[in-house]
Amino acid sequence: MISVQHVTTSYGRTVVVDDVSLTIADGGVTALVGPNGAGKSTLLKVIARLLQADAGVVTVADLDVARTAPEVLARRLAVLAQDTQVPVRLTVRDLVTFGRFPHTRGRPTAEDHALVEEAMAHLDITDLADRYLDEISGGQRQRAFIAMVFAQDTDHLLLDEPLNNLDMRHGAQLMQIVRDAADRRGTSIVLVVHDINAASVFADHIIALKDGRVVTQGPPQEVMVEDVLESVFDVPVRVVEVDGYRHAIHLSGRLARPRTG
């Protein structure tokens, strides 16, 4: 379980996360959604101890993230931040193998190598294994980093906008992989997504933030409602159902004045 209690974070004078308290139960996929500047990524970074909160306590699996030794936490919690720029010449396999570092401290066994190969196969990057990270595309690099956190094999996984840089096919593939990890391995996954429809289709639970506060949360059926989404994003929204999943359409100008006839 992830527990966030009265967490406040600010950059300079701007309060980005404003006294947020929430709990995220074990298992399943939770999506953090909200407009730009809502504090989603900041909150995710605080949970992942990449950022120190000004106030409040975060625990993951009963470990206080601010006080637990980094290597202990790294075996329970993996996080992928948005920035995947690498100025150093490493191969894809090198990077994914570092996912095993928290477990091996640099001495990977045959079992670790097998997990690395499996993670690369999962993310469809086996044929890139020996390429350098600066020679492949942004989307391929993104998948290499995701393979790294999968190889880390933790029970909690946090992803900050994992769909960035990915085309439609790889985006859908990734969401399917995330779904599988939650369903088959029982990994608890929290992700920040901009694509609210991806959240609707793949998440079990959606938490909507705005101005650093939690506005609403619940299963997709409860959050994917026109007036709820309009109050979160400040834009006119139509919700339609396709194949049993709710999708939001937000072509604001047209929707504000529906065509007649």
Binding site: P70, E71, A74, V79, A81, P102
Partner: peptide, 20 residues
Amino acid sequence: ADRFTIASLGHEVATNLGLD
């Protein structure tokens, strides 16, 4: 040596991998 390679991946990735 491994720590320096991991540190070169930046503060966030290094922290994720349990490196101070």
